[in-house]
Design a protein around this nucleic acid. Structure first.
Lengths: 134, 134
DNA sequence: GCGATGTTAACGAAAAGTGTTTAAGTCAAT
DNA sequence: ATTGACTTAAACACTTTTCGTTAACATCGC
């Protein structure tokens, strides 16, 4: 049975970083270049992002599809669209307008540029009002 | 920017499975063998397990190390060991005895056989009493 | 400017992951 | 004992990831 997504190297770097060390200090300790520490840390963060996205997908399997936000929509219009659709489905959304925008920005950083949604985003909701983006 | 851990194939199979289809039915739809559907589904579950484990590691970075459960410990003794250590650290654990055992079994299925812990398990706790196994 | 910090790009080698087939194996229900 | 659902293992070709190097680039505080 295998470990998680992170390699030993990546966990090592993350631990040192958590302690507040610079990339150069870590490079000295683990005997490599600071550029490599940077790369390792970056791919670690990428792996973590992917782990989160993977679990988000799992949740969408349990949730019901609420609506699709079409490409071109203004980011600030998204919450009201979600609220409207949720009301149709008679589910109260767990989040307010600001929280929804922040959740979308965290979960789908590649799906918008400035204030413009740049690719269709699927909206899922659970019976408890939890929102996921697919 | 890449997707999550799951391949298109794996997501496809999981969706169909969620709808209650058999592996054979899915094999017919996606034009492959049922053995292959089995393999794909299995590796999908493996990827999900790894995603969870990865995020658990992240949480341990924020948490403080409470103690180490030594290999050979009886599974049913683990909760009281955790409670005792948590009390020393003056933190109230969020979970009761049964919940702790279930959390351990979910998070570390490979760390015990029958009622016996078969490899050292690190116990981490947050200020809020959340428990993680490392 | 200078030094420290961090990031990025390009490249190669080694390692790990993916999809597939084939074949053999449980296990439960009929 | 036969069928259907599911699992496992080995082998294969193929792609991706990871680690490391070197060099260049961007900030920031002094």
């Amino acid at each position: 049975m295998k470990d998680g997504l992170l390699t030993d190297r990546q966990r090592e770097v993350l631990r040192y970083r958590k302690q507040g060390m610079t990339q150069q200090q870590i490079a000295d300790i683990i005997k490599t270049s600071k550029a490599n520490v940077c790369t390792i840390e970056k791919s670690a963060m990428e792996n973590i992002r992917r782990a989160k996205e993977t679990l988000e997908f799992l949740y969408t399997l349990d949730a019901t599809h609420l609506c699709t936000i079409p490409s071109g929509t203004d980011l600030f219009e998204v919450p009201s669209m979600i609220f409207a659709e949720a009301e149709k489905a008679k589910i109260k959304v767990k989040y307010d307008t600001i929280s929804l925008i922040n959740r979308l920005r965290e979960a789908r950083p590649q799906s918008y540029k400035a204030r413009c949604i740049c690719e269709d985003v699927q909206i899922y909701i659970t019976d408890e009002g939890e929102i996921y983006f697919g």
